[in-house]
Design a protein around this nucleic acid. Sequence first.
DNA 1: CTCCTTACGCACCTTCGGGTGCGTTACCGA
DNA 2: TCGGTAACGCACCCGAAGGTGCGTAAGGAG
Lengths: 125, 125
Amino acid sequence: MKSRDISLAACSYSHVLEIISNKWTALVIYSLENGTIRYGEIQRRIEGISQKMLTQTLRQLERDGLVSRKVTPSVPPIVEYALTPLGDSLIPCMKMLKDWAADHYSEVGKAREAYDTSGAEPVVR
Amino acid sequence: MKSRDISLAACSYSHVLEIISNKWTALVIYSLENGTIRYGEIQRRIEGISQKMLTQTLRQLERDGLVSRKVTPSVPPIVEYALTPLGDSLIPCMKMLKDWAADHYSEVGKAREAYDTSGAEPVVR
DNA sequence: CTCCTTACGCACCTTCGGGTGCGTTACCGA
DNA sequence: TCGGTAACGCACCCGAAGGTGCGTAAGGAG
């Protein structure tokens, strides 16, 4: 009987998720893991991301102080992105999530299959 | 030059986020942390969650094998929820996220403020 | 002279997660 | 007799996240 009320706004979980739960955010961070990289290169690395989505995601990360952006005004322009120390500090967390998935995601798959084949009430989807 | 392409579908990050990135999921797991608990009690604990959302969230977690559901058919019915071992294994990950937020979220707030007040290009929102 | 390139901005459209509100079963206390 | 209670299901609505496609600058390659 420790915890009483949990509020959405006050919960730290929600704050992190707000930052990294967007569709492409995690992949972008992942692609920056090994150091500075150009815009176009990121796009080539991440399969299926559109230019708009990549730009949007990077802007958001920049605003949140997780990545830095360096523009070299030439033509064509060169824009390089890198993780800030703050961004770096997130890496271990994401690694942990990744490892969890690597270890347990197959169980989730099985659970889903079992749930779906047994005539249990279907989840909305 | 290790990693080449990153695909959304193949990336483990995405799998975890698929599971825990819903609005209420983290809070529900959080409320189950200390053991078995009834539906109504969960709702009372989590500020602002609607019945539909709670049911939906629990169904999803059950389908994913993270929580178990035990129904005692009385009137009114008693439905109890608890974390499965699989669900339990997620707790450390979520704690880590929570700790990261506790340690660094203020920096994110500052970064945002700085970004917004300096006349940088506004993120869409 | 024309096309290709980089790193975007902008307008539009679709999808889906989330929210609101109402109905339901069957018992129990006032 | 009537309302309250627990744990939902169902129908409908809304807004935001995400996707598609087009325009753009200025220089270098052909």
